[in-house]
């Protein structure tokens, strides 16, 4: 538990400039360690998705460093980031984002194949991931032949396939009913218990409660939780 799988160091992200500059994140420091699930909560526009896209190497900070498994994402360059996304980082979105023309198994094996894994090995890894999520029997279905909950399981299989150690989930239960949403959290939780680091963005307190830690964002700033609960008076 010594070095974090994900480490944001003083990260800021400013969109636009001058009068119109939007400070989506301001000097945010954040860690996620192997074996833990961290929930990120905050009102809409507080910077949750920005934090996740930076952690996932889908966007670059204006200042500060994002380090995943010891690799500085900025220094890694576009190619290095793309490679990490195919091998170390799994991303789960609210709207599943499966490729409609591919079967469940093909959706899951795609990142490995893109990374140059032999087709056979990629297929085998996909089958393992689908089995692990209890949907091995759906391998040959297309996304439009599955329920929302099933599609989200496929998306999670894609996010964990090939021993990925960092799983980033942005409102993964948003489109699901409460019992199906809970199944998805159980799976994320199990994955973190098995050694991955997970970051879960959610606006449902009930779902955040699956996490080991909850981080609150306000206007691009992490609320300091350390003194919450300690200080007796709240007088200014």
């Amino acid at each position: 538990m010594n070095t974090p799988v994900l480490h944001l160091e003083g990260v800021s992200r400013i969109h636009g400039s001058g009068e119109l500059a939007v400070h989506a994140l301001r000097e945010v420091s954040f860690e996620a360690y192997a074996g833990e699930l961290v929930a990120v909560m905050g009102p809409s526009g507080s910077g949750k998705s920005t934090l996740l896209t930076l952690a996932g190497g889908l966007d670059e900070p204006t200042s500060g460093r994002v380090v995943v498994e010891g690799t500085d994402l900025t220094a890694a360059g576009a190619g290095g980031r793309a490679r990490l996304r195919r091998t170390a980082i799994g991303y789960v979105f609210q709207d599943f984002n499966l490729i409609p023309a591919l079967t469940a198994a093909e959706n899951v094996s795609l990142p490995l194949e893109l990374d140059g894994a032999p087709s056979r090995a990629a297929r085998a890894a996909a089958a393992t991931a689908l089995d692990e999520l209890g949907i091995g029997d759906l391998a040959d279905r297309f996304p439009d032949e599955m329920s929302g909950g099933q599609q989200q399981r496929v998306a999670i299989a894609r996010a964990i396939v090939g021993q990925r150690r960092l799983i980033l989930a942005d409102e993964p239960t948003g489109a699901l009913d409460s019992v199906t949403g809970e199944d998805i959290l159980r799976l994320l939780r199990a994955r973190c218990d098995a050694g991955a680091a997970g970051v879960l963005v959610t606006h449902e307190p009930r779902h955040a409660a699956w996490a080991d830690r909850v981080v609150y964002l306000r206007d691009g700033v992490v609320l300091d939780d350390e003194d919450a609960g300690e200080t007796v008076g709240a007088r200014r």
Binding site: P205, A208, A209, V214, Y216, A228, G229, T231, A234
Partner: peptide, 15 residues
């Protein structure tokens, strides 16, 4: 601040 302190405590109970 009071609201955040309460939220944090209630979240711990929820966990």
């Amino acid at each position: 601040d009071i609201i955040q302190r309460q939220r944090s405590a209630t979240m711990k109970a929820l966990q």
